[in-house]
Write a protein that binds this DNA or RNA. Structure first.
Length: 891
DNA sequence: ATGCGAACGTA
DNA sequence: CGTACGTTCGCATG
């Protein structure tokens, strides 16, 4: 009998898969109207439905653990002892999942005192012996031991449950280097952290596999422990009870007494009424459609399932791609964009930065257009691309740049699903399209042939991607509140082409200046290092904190500094402390060396990024930060040194390019304090800004009770640190550290500050309180940042969340304001036909390249647009400077 | 090769 | 025991 004729038994480890799903999907995005979390259920069912479609099991069961206690924990109480509390959001999802499974006609099994894995192993064994093709679905590595010629393990990869890797005998051997039945021997030697099973010290997978292959089994390895040389051999002999114990615990039973046999696990019909009821309660719309489709197919009602006119059943079926050119394409665009009013999904694909094709889509149709730059017949397409006709894209900036490089102008980006998802949930890295489809639509994108041993990850057609984009856009738009939607459509979306243009333009760099500076700094570093080695009498790697610790705390016996994970800190602040307590020439030399090598490092990074035309192009991460700021990378041009004279020499190498007169920099002064004044409504602060006096002098005079003219430099420094620290949630302890003053003095300073500027404290308290209730903070323009840990019982987590919460509206509003200014400046430049260009954004600063004769106009418009980007109760002060290079243009 | 922590550059 | 980032290095894992 061939495999395809055999009945297929699929057995699933319910807990382990549900738990994987729980961590793979955002808790916040999956809640039903009663507030019940459903992410684990959703992920599990989505995976299950895919499995039903792809594997078509004839027999099926899901096994659950009854509790975390079993015969194993009785014999060895520490087993799985490192497992923490089950998250509250997970609790309660299992009974609901069982309900859903029951409605789908799927049997669930569990047995007191045994783990689900034992039930799986027993069924796998029975199925294998009785002519079944067996598929075990589990996220527990112990399940590998079940694999044989009839049994295949489907194991979720790191990304959760959306992709399952097939482990048959060969795949296990390829991955682990042993036969499946030997895997527990290897695991026993290595240990399993998640089960709290400690292995033999210094024995990793490599060593364990070597031994097991050499001696054939764990028993034989242990019997020959005397023969194994070296430290690991000694460890094995010393700790021989560990692998022995581990092996007993990771052995799965294949003879558990179960109330059913494999034959009883044949698929039962789906109870469609019950499924509707349960899925409706869970608010799983798409999943319901997918289950119903399977139900229809299984009762032989294929016509309904396949009918393309049935919008409901067709929702999750990928439309066939039509490849189009010329008139057909022109007609398709005109019809589906309803004469440039209706949005179409758009995806540009490229090879080595050259456009090779475009995918277009509506919610029901997809089209692929092969692209060749010299084809003459694409006028309808290029006209549509360059028009304001709305396009929905994913990560539009990247595609706009590539298209522009290939001479294709794209305008009218009306929705970007990457930006939308980030505005909805601004944390972590932005998700790829495929991940979004899974997270938000609950659909798994098939990747290659699932029967491949290692499925090749076939790139999705741009046409299909566009179709997903259209559907995602609809979903994401429906999830956005009014404020977030405004941020997306009025700020983030219009900025896409602006950032794309800035990145493409880049900024000119004087390579010679950098090279000279770098070699001089390298010489300095080498000289300083030589001196340092002389002082301590030996040569070490000054860049190694570990070796530095040895010098400072062992050799030189200096007092211990702040502790970190690898011992004691050697950072600049700690070294300064040491210099005070135990002065030593090595300390200063070390700092000088750090300084010089750091700058060389930064220069090297910039040099490597200079292109053939002498310009450097950063990439802005528009959807990366949690506050609304943008980040710059590859290279990062937002952390070019400015504080030291040598550092500024690096800035001086950024210049106006050929054909341009000068650089212009414009920055907001004290924008975050101004936002604090506005948001808190503090009369004192507002007065300070409205009188236009030096802020820190004004505040200092109030706190210390002297005339502004009598505020000393020392007083001003303290006040300045205090003011800036406020917006970060600085504590008295932190302030004292920074100013190197007594904690009591720092405390007094804070008390005096709040006595004069009480509304600031009230505001900061209120922000945190409101966020605790709402679950998010909001900027002046409606940008939200969610917070989950404000009610955490863990103090560290809670305190961190509180500081983040009080900082977010301030930092985020500042980001919003500069973004608004950028939009208006860009619009002015274009509408007036100016040749000057916006080059860089550094959080509160913009850098421009000024074309001949445009300095005056640019100065005026930049000033106007930046000052007018928000109307606060205090003015927005903008400082402008010009000069041939970035340093000279500073003020 | 890959991932993590330390350190440090900016606003 | 101060927010938000990105990059580089050493070092421990593979």
């Amino acid at each position: 009998m061939s495999d395809s004729q055999k009945p297929t038994l699929m057995i699933i480890d319910g807990h382990s898969l549900a738990f994987r799903a729980f961590y793979a999907l955002p808790v916040d995005s999956f809640q039903n109207r009663e507030g019940q979390h459903t992410n684990a259920i959703h992920g599990f069912l989505s995976m299950l439905i895919s499995l039903l479609q792809n594997e078509k099991p004839t027999h099926l069961a899901v096994a659950f653990d009854i509790s975390r206690y079993s015969f194993r924990t009785r014999e060895y109480p520490e087993y799985k002892g490192t497992r923490g509390e089950t998250p509250v959001e997970f609790v309660g999802q299992i009974p609901l999942l069982e309900e859903a499974l029951k409605a789908m006609g799927i049997q669930t099994l569990s047995k007191e005192d045994f783990e689900a894995d034992d039930i799986l192993a027993t069924l796998a064994h029975e199925g294998s012996e009785n002519g079944y093709r067996v598929l075990v679905v589990s996220g527990d590595r112990d399940a590998i031991q079940m694999v044989n010629d009839n049994v295949t393990l489907l194991y979720p990869n790191a990304r959760g449950v959306s992709e399952l890797k097939r482990y048959d005998r060969d795949a296990v051997f390829e991955r682990y280097g042993v036969e499946p039945h030997q895997y527990p021997d290897v695991a026993a030697l290595v240990g399993e952290t998640s089960d709290n099973l400690i292995g033999v010290d210094k024995v990793g997978e490599k060593t364990a596999v070597k031994w097991v292959n050499l001696y054939g089994s764990l028993d034989e390895v242990l019997a020959h422990a005397d023969e194994i040389k070296g430290v690991v051999g000694q460890n094995l002999r010393d700790q021989i009870d560990r692998p022995a114990r581990n092996r007993k615990l990771n052995h799965l039973l294949t003879d558990v007494d179960l109330p059913v046999s494999v034959g009883d696990l044949d698929r039962r019909p789906i109870d469609e009424t019950a499924v509707r009821e349960v899925f409706d309660r869970l608010q799983f719309k798409t999943l319901l459609q997918r289950v119903m489709k399977i139900a229809a197919a299984e009762r032989g009602d294929d016509a309904t399932a396949a009918a393309p006119s049935d919008a409901v059943d067709d929702a999750a079926a990928i439309p066939a791609i039509r490849t189009m050119v010329d008139e057909e394409l022109a007609k398709w665009i005109s019809t589906n964009s309803k004469d440039n009013t209706a949005p179409l999904g758009l995806t540009v694909t490229s090879v080595d930065g050259v456009v090779t094709g475009l995918g277009l889509a509506t919610a029901t149709e997809t089209a692929f257009v092969p692209w060749a730059a010299d084809r003459p017949d694409y006028e309808a397409l290029t006209t549509w691309l360059a028009s304001d006709s709305p396009k929905f894209m994913h990560s539009a900036k990247t595609q706009l740049k590539i298209a522009a490089d290939s001479g294709l102008n794209i305008a009218g980006v009306a929705f970007d699903t990457m930006l939308a998802a980030w505005v909805l949930k601004p944390s972590g890295k932005p998700e790829e399209l495929e991940a979004q489809v899974y997270s938000y639509l609950g659909e798994t994108i098939e990747q290659g042939d699932p029967n491949q041993l290692v499925p090749e990850t076939e790139e999705l057609s741009p046409a299909t991607k566009s179709w997903y984009v259209v559907r995602l856009a609809e979903y994401l738009a429906s999830r956005l509140d009014e404020g977030s939607l405004a941020v997306l459509t009025d700020i983030e979306m219009p900025l896409v082409p602006v950032f794309a243009q800035m990145e493409r333009t880049g900024i000119a760099v004087n390579r010679q200046l950098l090279t000279d500076l770098s070699s001089s700094l390298s010489t300095t570093a080498a000289d300083v290092a030589r001196n340092a080695f002389e002082v301590i009498g030996r040569e070490i790697n000054l860049g190694s904190p570990k070796q530095l610790q040895d010098v400072l705390f062992t050799q030189l016996e200096m007092p211990k500094t702040r502790a970190n994970k690898t011992g004691f800190s050697t950072d600049a602040a700690s070294l300064a402390d040491l210099q005070e307590q135990a002065p030593h020439p090595f300390l200063d030399l070390l700092l000088q060396h750090r300084d010089a090598t750091k700058l060389v490092q930064i220069i090297t990074g910039i040099e490597k990024a200079i292109d053939d035309s002498g310009r450097v192009h950063t990439t802005y991460e528009q959807a990366g930060s949690s506050t609304g700021r943008i980040a710059s990378n590859d290279p990062n041009l937002q952390n070019v040194p400015v504080k030291t004279a040598t550092g500024r020499q690096i800035r001086a190498s950024f210049e106006a390019g050929a054909g341009f007169d000068t650089l212009l920099t414009a920055d907001y002064s004290q924008i975050e304090m101004r936002i604090m004044a506005h948001l808190s409504g503090d009369e004192g602060l507002i007065q300070a800004f409205n009188e236009g006096e030096d802020l820190h002098r004004f505040v200092g005079s109030r706190i210390f009770g002297v005339e502004p003219a009598d505020v000393t430099a020392e007083m001003r420094t303290k006040v300045k640190a205090m003011s800036y620290g406020l917006a970060y949630g600085l504590s008295a302890f932190g302030l004292s550290k920074q100013l190197r003053i007594e904690t009591s003095e720092a405390k007094a300073l804070m008390t005096d500050y709040f006595a004069r500027f009480g509304a600031v404290r009230d505001y900061l308290r209120n922000v945190v309180e409101q966020a605790r209730v709402d679950g998010y903070t909001t900027t002046i323009f409606g940008r939200r940042r969610p917070f989950g840990d404000l009610n955490s019982k863990n103090r560290v987590l809670r305190d961190n969340a509180e500081r983040q919460a009080l900082n977010s509206p301030v930092q985020g509003s500042a980001a919003d304001i500069l973004k608004r200014a950028m939009l208006q400046i860009d619009a002015d430049i274009r509408s007036e036909g100016l040749q000057s260009r916006m080059l860089l954004q550094v959080h509160d600063e913009l850098v421009f390249e000024i074309a001949g004769g445009e300095l005056e106009r640019m100065t005026t418009l930049v000033h106007e647009r930046m000052s007018g980007a928000a109307s606060l109760t205090v003015p927005l002060d903008v400082q402008i400077g010009t000069g041939h290079n970035w340093d000279a243009a500073a003020h």
